[in-house]
Nucleic acid binder design. Structure first.
Lengths: 183, 183
DNA sequence: CCCAAGTGAGACAGAATCGTCTCACGGGTG
DNA sequence: CACCCGTGAGACGATTCTGTCTCACTTGGG
């Protein structure tokens, strides 16, 4: 009887990731609830997206915590991070592309905090000599987001096997970021 | 007096890349023309997107031709490709994200042809021993698209210097794809 | 100089979506 | 068992966008 708010948000994220113009009615149908009920819990589309943001930030932050980026090498940390992030990849990629919409009007500072943590992680890797220094932490951070989004989509359409998600991303990103002897 | 169709499409791409929900009126304003004129040349939003697709495919194909991927090493080919693609990066990233919308109903086969060319390029690189074989050509292709889109956005918001666009993408992607002695 | 073609601005109806409201239904609780 | 809260379904007006049309204006060619 009582609405499962989390389940609604997850199905909404899954739908909006594929089609960001989806109707409130479609979002409701996808969640298996009525449009009226959806409006009772989220006062309009903006509120829904805001709730998705909060959920995404919260889950991404949890993934960052779970990855304990401080421990071990940069490679180990990144592998843990990507593994922890995989279940949230769809939601995350939605928010990243959605962030481009909010034209600087109100950038969620929770997002900035996450950016800072990821960026700092890459910077530490550079300082320890584990990562190349000619690729900026900001770019590595953006590239990580982009690859996660691309990977999630590639898996969804069957272009990449789901079990290869982590491997593909980490190997590609890290191989590029890792200091190479040749060259 | 006569409408510059190409210029309209470019400004439309620039706008729609940032905000895919932009109104026909906004698209017209951005192009500096009236909404009526826009409708005279593109019968509806779908036709506009279709025209953008055609333009993007055409320009990407031209970039592929200009890059002469067959000549030289995979690294040289990729550098030429990214350089040739840079001016079209915005349009390209729009189409990639837009492609996710067309839910398989009518996949432009021109797009498949381009995919095949890029994918074949990576495969040749693998067969020649220049690229790692544990990352599939399909994934490398998707990753290239993703990084181009991410890079274009990062430059647009000032997170990455515009002059670093090519370097960042090629170094990251190639470093990951290139066979590494360590490991 | 005049005319034809293309354009911009605005009006207009139709369609789609939104947000709210009402009402009947059903499960859980006292 | 009866009550009550939350829900689904649908109606409703308001808003927004769309696509088409008209009309006056500008520009370039004859």
């Amino acid at each position: 009887m009582t609405l499962d708010r989390e389940q609604v948000l997850r199905s909404a994220a899954a739908l909006l990731t594929r089609r960001s113009t989806a109707t409130m009615d479609e979002v409701a149908r996808a969640a298996g609830i009525g449009r009226a009920t959806l409006h009772r819990h989220f006062a309009g589309r903006d509120a829904l997206v805001r709730a998705l943001e909060d959920l995404g930030i919260q889950e991404f932050e949890a993934a960052l915590d779970a990855a304990v980026l401080d421990e071990g090498t940069a490679e180990e940390g990144l592998r843990r991070l990507v593994a922890a992030v995989e279940p949230v990849a769809g939601l995350l990629s939605f928010l990243v592309s959605e962030n481009q919409l909010f034209e600087g009007d109100e950038v969620n500072d929770g997002w900035n905090r996450l950016d800072a943590r990821v960026s700092a992680f890459f910077r530490r890797g550079q300082e320890r000599g584990e990562l190349r220094i000619d690729l900026t932490p900001a770019w590595l951070t953006e590239a990580l987001y982009g690859l996660i989004g691309t990977g999630a989509w590639a898996v969804q359409v069957g272009r990449v096997a789901g079990q290869d998600f982590q491997y593909m991303i980490v190997e590609l990103l890290l191989g590029g970021a890792r200091r190479s002897v040749e060259e």
